[in-house]
Computed example of a mutant assay.
Amino acid sequence: MIESTDREVAGSLGTLTVREWSGDNPGWIALIAHGYGEHSGRYQWVADQLLQARALVCAPDHIGHGRSPGDRVYYEDAEYLVADLEALRREVTAQHPDLPVVLIGHSMGGMLAARYAQEHQRRLAALVLSGPVLGTWHVLDLLEHDEIPDTPIDPATLSRDPEVGAAYLADELVWHGPFKRATLRAVDDCLLAINEGPTLEIPTLWVHGEDDELVPEADTRTGIDRIRGNEFHEHIYPGARHELFNETNKTEVMTDVRNFIGRALNS
């Protein structure tokens, strides 16, 4: 296992903390956009797998998440977070100008990655969306309440492996409190923008758990159907829950991801 090193990147709303994993002679750059309430440190295993495929892996903690500054899980416009991904891409590619970039987004990070790809398609060699919040999301129903109720994420929805949920609950860098109204409104606005935006013409892979209760596959598909292009691929895994990279079949998932990226980079 290769441990990450830290770098700081000037973001739209503050200086972001970024984890970077690098092996010898990388052949491509993997940018990882993590999900709501979590942080980049939960992607050590993913980074290990990508390093074996000769990736240089960079994963920011979004503003208000993990070790980055800001009110916890709070932002008023998702476009700030999309711009932060572009700021990171610019900095990393300035140091490695000949390496292609693949963006991997999970959950809320999948939403950000899809929006980024719509705005910057020519800057990506491929896109991977894991359990992305797209189309519609039942959590946005919380906006109907005068006061947002405290409905933390049920760790049992993350994986069939109970140790994943236990680690999630024990992780002090994970947000375990209520959703913020401004953030939910920003997510809603971003989903509308994606639905009205261009199709994805770059190679794109969508992976999703069939038993994902946190971000149901059927709801995501309503958004996927609006943006899928001619080079779009999907894998829906029977019995799998939300965090496919932490699921009991995570090796299968990562094999599919790595094979897809290999084909995209060699095409």
Rank of each mutant, 00 (worst) to 15 (best):
E8G: 07
A10C: 08
T5Q: 14
A30C: 14
T5K: 13
G23A: 14
V9T: 15
E8W: 10
G14I: 04
S12P: 04
R19I: 04
H34L: 09
W21Y: 05
A10V: 14
G11D: 01
S22Q: 03
V18Q: 03
R19L: 11
T5W: 04
A10S: 14
G11Q: 01
G27E: 15
G14A: 05
R7W: 09
I32T: 04
E8T: 10
A33D: 14
V9Y: 09
N25I: 06
L31R: 07
H34V: 09
E20D: 11
A10I: 11
A33H: 13
E20W: 01
A30N: 04
W21A: 02
D6H: 12
D6V: 09
L16D: 02
I29V: 13
T15G: 09
P26M: 05
L13D: 11
G23P: 04
E8H: 15
E8M: 09
W21D: 00
E8F: 14
D6L: 13
W21N: 01
S12N: 07
T15M: 08
N25T: 13
R19N: 12
L16N: 00
D24L: 12
D24F: 08
E20L: 08
W21F: 10
H34T: 12
V18S: 07
G23N: 12
E8I: 06
W21T: 00
R19P: 06
V18W: 01
G11A: 01
V18N: 01
A30I: 02
V18Y: 01
A30S: 12
D6M: 10
A10G: 09
T17I: 11
S22C: 06
G11I: 00
V9H: 09
G14T: 02
D24A: 15
L16G: 00
D6I: 09
D6R: 12
L16F: 05
D24H: 12
R19H: 04
T17H: 15
L31M: 15
S12W: 04
T17W: 11
P26I: 06
L31P: 08
S12Y: 04
D6E: 13
P26Y: 04
V9A: 09
R7Q: 13
V9C: 12
R7S: 12
G11Y: 00
I32Y: 11
W21K: 00
G14Y: 05
L13E: 13
G27S: 12
W28S: 01
W28C: 01
W28L: 02
D24R: 08
T15N: 13
E20I: 06
E20V: 15
I29H: 03
G14W: 07
T5P: 05
I32E: 08
A30G: 15
S22T: 06
L13W: 05
V9I: 15
T5V: 14
